[in-house]
Each structure stands twice: as C-alpha cells, then as structure tokens.
Design a protein around this nucleic acid. Structure first.
Length: 178
DNA sequence: CCAAGGATTGGC
DNA sequence: CCAATCCTTGGA
C-alpha cells in the first residue's frame, strides 16, 4: 500500500467513546478531512461544543430519542448532520457509550486545503467542506473514504462552559475580533 | 393538520 | 436589529 494521506492514522472509536466535553476539547487541533471525489478538503478544528446527556437543555437529546436525534444514542464516531434555520448545516460527531445521548458540534476550523468558503461557524464549516445532511448524516467517521478525522497539532485551549476553542485563533466563531 | 421555533448567517 | 428558509416537534 502506498503511504498516501488516506492511509495515515485516523481518530478511531476509542477517541469518540469518551464523554462529550472530553472529546470536544480533544478535537481542537485535529484535522477534519473531506474527500470530495478527487478533491481533498481539510481544515484544522479550532472550536467545538459538547452536548452531553438528556439533561443538557441545549441538546437535541433533551426531548428523548426523536427520529432526528436518535442517532445521538448510537455508537460513537458517527456523524450527526442536520439543517438549522433552513439555511445552514451543522456537523456533529456522536460521543460516549451507546445509550448515552451525547455529541460534539464542530463549530469552527482553520482552513488548510481545498476549502470552498470560510470555515468560521458551524454552517460555514459545512459549506466550505461540502458537508450535507443528505450525504453525510449517519456516516461512520472511523471508517469510509469520504469524511474522517486525523491527528493534528494540539493547541492551547480556552473554555467557556462546554464550548472549547483554540486560544487566540482568528478562525473561532462569534463577534469578529482583530 | 397546523403553528412555533431553532446548536446560524449575513445584510441593513 | 432582523429576515431567510425548511425541518422537526408537539399539540389540536
């Protein structure tokens, strides 16, 4: 086998089977890879937010395993993609043990290669990498050749509640700074 | 069936 | 500040 990038290590089941806040922080600096036909689009995660358990009032899991959110109760490492406000997709990775509803929302990234758009904000990140609900919801990110995560350089991080971000990154979402 | 509202974004 | 735009949910 040729040592192409697609053969490099990718984050596996064990990485995602931890509590969502732990995974959210650990995802900072990791590289999201979207193989789009012959084109590879990559971005380094600088902001991620945990949605942890049925008691998390901000989580889609708060209403129980509805048709849309039931995937959060499933195995870790699976993508949960949904449309918000009719305009933007949000990409999450399911975390924790099966039966525990939790996931991490990828909120912002540093564009590396092939990005089509700004990667600042969850909807923009999906647009930049060509991530859609129709194509990616339910995909196992620990297998397959379309969407996965590879190890990257860990950053200094900052936290606000269950939202983690790279300290000082200009790609983090929220009110624009300079 | 229908009404309400959302893990956002960008324009005014 | 606020509308876009459509899917999901919950109640009649």
């Amino acid at each position: 086998m040729k040592p192409t990038a697609s053969r490099l290590a990718r984050l596996g089941r064990a990485f995602f089977s931890r509590p969502a806040p732990v995974v959210a922080r650990a995802l900072l600096g990791q590289v999201l890879v979207r193989q789009d036909g012959g084109v590879r689009r990559t971005a380094r995660i600088v902001e991620a937010e945990a949605y942890h358990g049925p008691e998390d009032r901000a989580s889609h899991a708060r209403a129980g395993p509805t048709p849309r959110a039931a995937i959060m109760w499933g195995p870790p490492g699976v993508a949960y993609v949904y449309l918000i406000y009719g305009t933007s997709f949000c990409l999450n990775v399911v975390t924790g043990e099966p039966g525990e509803p939790s996931a991490v929302l990828l909120r912002a990234a540093e564009p590396l290669t092939g990005c089509l758009h700004s990667t600042r904000g969850p909807g923009n990140l999906c647009r930049a990498l060509g991530v859609t609900r129709a194509r990616h919801d339910g995909l196992d990110l620990t297998a397959g050749d379309e969407l996965w995560l590879t190890p990257g350089a860990g950053p200094r991080w900052a936290a606000r509640r269950w939202r983690f971000s790279e300290a000082g990154s200009p790609f983090v979402s929220g009110p624009r700074r300079r």
